[in-house]
Nucleic acid binder design. Structure first.
Lengths: 342, 342
DNA sequence: GGCCGCATGGTAAACGTTTACCATTTGTTG
DNA sequence: CAACAAATGGTAAACGTTTACCATGCGGCC
């Protein structure tokens, strides 16, 4: 009646075989005769026996688990990648466990510890920060379970990155706005700690420089990838005496907050001001107006992450290389030509 | 140089003590003298030793992990609960692992297997469906690791539920629209498999019945809790010869799709038609217009889930009871009085 | 019949911890 | 200083698997 789950020993007794045979019947079927296999499987069905993977993992030093560590699972962009990770992982027999850190160092370490303590085989890391409490300079990837960086690079040797070229994407987005006649283009960035945001900013600056426009710090707002950040920073931009004719938001969530702030101030998008996003999350086409943005190939990113990790997991000497995937400009109706009088 | 993580035996040798002492120094500090403890901790620091929890869990039959199984981690409502789960769990020394199933049975089973195979201690279940491949009628909660139902009940004895009263909430939302003069009130539900959606529908019908309005199946659209479902079903509602003056969406995501469809058709919200949501996700106030909705106490839900699970985990004989928490009507500007001519 | 090889299944060691039990040392108290 | 208690640390068993190694039995072949 109580939670007495049956063990392999009892199961063996019931099936009338040794525990070795039980193990083989379950995880290496062709190693036993059809008759015994069925005897064992029948007993399994009858008793509801479920092997204890702690024992198995302890012996084999493999768990079949992969942990994806990220600051925010509810971030719609991350989520696109997650979905793909899970699909690809289960094809290969792994389970993906999600570790949501909310940027909290203690929680990063807790999830890192899960891998270091052998409860998972490897990490997909959606952050530039290592989930280990060690000196980065002394870090040697060979002494730790495999990690693949997704979208944000840690910049450490031995940790492959799967990402788009954020610099190029930032440049392309800015160029698109320039092509519409915009000259006063503001940006609302992600955290300056985020390498992807830093790269996008470089692209933005490069595009402007190409047409001879110098950096204008008033037009650069350092935020983070959240909706609230978009709202707040937009308000600040609107308070400028000479306000921008376009705002390039480094995430679609930022753009959502941006659009809300613009609406509050009575400005029409894109007639009065253009708004550009980044990521192409699933909500983007439902924004008001539907958002022009840079689409990231989330399925491909997820696929390659698992593929690289698997490679490293099955071959210790593998030296997986960075994978840079193409992004795509998606034009909707939040961007338009600059107003003649501006 | 290769991934040779050090074990407790080597660590013991380095520290010059027995493995028992190492174990005690780490996980039961007061059991050893200050001097030896420091000797051990120094060795740990020097070597970067990290205990293998498989061995420990195997011995203690505890992992300190809780798995939250849900159809969609990116669902903003779920996420509110997740955040709270994580906070509350880490206070108690648990790690929360997220299992995203996308409603896929195979993946539900895979995450269920993680618990049955002792890799986690208990489950927070965001679905009415058990993640086990067994006959529900024969299910005996005592034979399985503890489960707490979050927001969706499985209706099984021994599985406590933490939720709001969905029926009452559905009734209250409907009454609010009735109070604004609406008589033709449509609903877009969640999946009919979702007990929460079924309850909300009951509340809606009860509210209408109270004022003498009978069920009108044309006004009841069975969807699911997604944005696409909201868009599609709204289109169908608008195609009715006698269209509703208000739409009650059973999730804020549905409402987001609904608002998009209404905008496309040129209708003004709330002047031409009122829209009501459910959940009060973090985006709701950024909708256009900001969404009137029913707020669920997500922090409280998460807290109680962990609390109940912890109770059951530490006391096998505990009989945790359902926790029903209060919801709250949040009025914003997507709802308004019915048009005089309607 | 004698021999070989293969299919099958058992025995026992190993994985890395925790902890009951015991032995020793140290401290306390009369 | 005897006697006992408390503090400390070691030994070894146990948790549930997998798998190297071995033993047995059987069919096929000369």
């Amino acid at each position: 009646m109580p939670n007495d789950t049956i063990g392999i020993k009892e199961l063996a007794e019931i099936a009338g075989v040794s525990i070795a045979t039980v193990s083989r019947a379950i995880s290496n079927p062709k190693r036993v005769s059809k008759a015994t296999r069925e005897k064992v499987l029948d007993a399994v069905k009858k008793t509801g026996y479920s092997p204890n993977r702690l024992g198995a993992s302890l012996r084999t030093a493999k768990t079949g688990n992969i942990i994806a560590i990220m600051p925010d699972v509810s971030d719609q962009f991350n989520f696109g990648v997650i979905k793909s990770l899970e699909l690809e992982a289960s094809k290969r027999g792994y389970s993906v466990l999600l570790g949501d850190t909310q940027g909290d160092r203690a929680r990063e370490l807790a999830y890192g510890a899960i891998v270091r303590s052998k409860q998972a085989d490897g990490i997909i890391l959606f952050s530039h920060r290592l989930p280990y409490d060690i000196d980065v300079d002394a870090f040697d990837a060979n002494n730790f379970p495999p990690i693949v960086n997704s979208c944000e690079t840690s910049g450490l040797p031995g940790l492959p990155l799967v990402s788009i070229n954020n610099r190029a994407a930032g440049e392309e987005a800015t160029n698109y706005l320039i092509g519409l006649g915009h000259k006063k283009i503001a940006v609302i960035t992600g955290s300056t700690e985020s390498p992807s945001a830093v790269e996008r900013l470089k692209g933005y600056l490069a595009a402007l420089k190409t047409i001879g426009i110098n950096r204008d710090n008033d037009l650069i707002k350092y935020g983070n990838y959240t909706i609230e950040s978009g709202e707040e920073n937009t308000k600040q931009l609107l308070a400028l005496t000479d306000r921008p004719s376009a705002i390039f938001c480094f995430s679609d969530e930022i753009a959502m907050g941006c659009l809300a702030a613009l609406k509050n101030s009575g400005l029409k998008v894109p007639e009065d001001i253009s708004v550009m996003g980044f990521d192409d999350i699933r909500f983007a086409r439902f924004f008001d107006p539907p958002l022009t943005t840079i689409a990231q190939p989330v399925e491909e990113i997820g696929k390659h992450c698992i593929s690289l990790l698997h490679e490293k997991l099955t071959d210790k000497d593998a030296k997986p290389e960075d994978v840079i995937l193409p992004h795509k400009l998606v034009v909707r109706s939040s961007t338009g030509p600059v107003k003649p009088d501006e």
